[in-house]
């Protein structure tokens, strides 16, 4: 697929998408009504939240804690439910 504005001329050679993973431009964070908040005093840095994230949008910080990329986080709450030490809470978007 040719670059440039999306006119039909971009597709003359076909519509193969040659930018792997470029759907990451798409924001899914807007679907969210709740977001996860970490209490790092309880966090044991095990990474269960990271493992079970379906997006995946949970990443490890330089200090070894975890955080959610809210650009993508849809607020499913799996991380909070699965956290072994209850270090993650789901809070309403508006509350913060």
């Amino acid at each position: 697929m040719a670059d440039g504005p999306l006119t039909w001329k971009n597709f003359i050679g076909g519509f193969v998408v040659d930018k792997p993973g470029n759907a990451a431009e798409y924001q899914t964070g807007g679907w969210r009504s709740q977001k996860p908040v970490w209490d790092n005093t309880k966090c044991i840095k095990c990474g269960v939240c990271y493992i079970y994230c379906p997006e995946p949008c949970i990443r490890q910080t330089a200090e070894g804690y975890f955080e959610s990329d809210l650009f993508y986080c849809k607020g499913c709450g799996i991380c909070a439910r699965e956290c072994w030490t209850n270090a993650i809470k789901m809070v309403q978007e508006e509350e913060v």
């Binding site: 999306l6 006119t7 039909w8 001329k9 971009n10 597709f11 003359i12 050679g13 519509f15």
Partner: peptide, 13 residues
């Protein structure tokens, strides 16, 4: 928003 463009391109090609 994009289907027609792919088809027009295919016919042109």
């Amino acid at each position: 928003f994009i289907y027609s463009e792919t088809k027009k391109a295919q016919d042109f090609a």
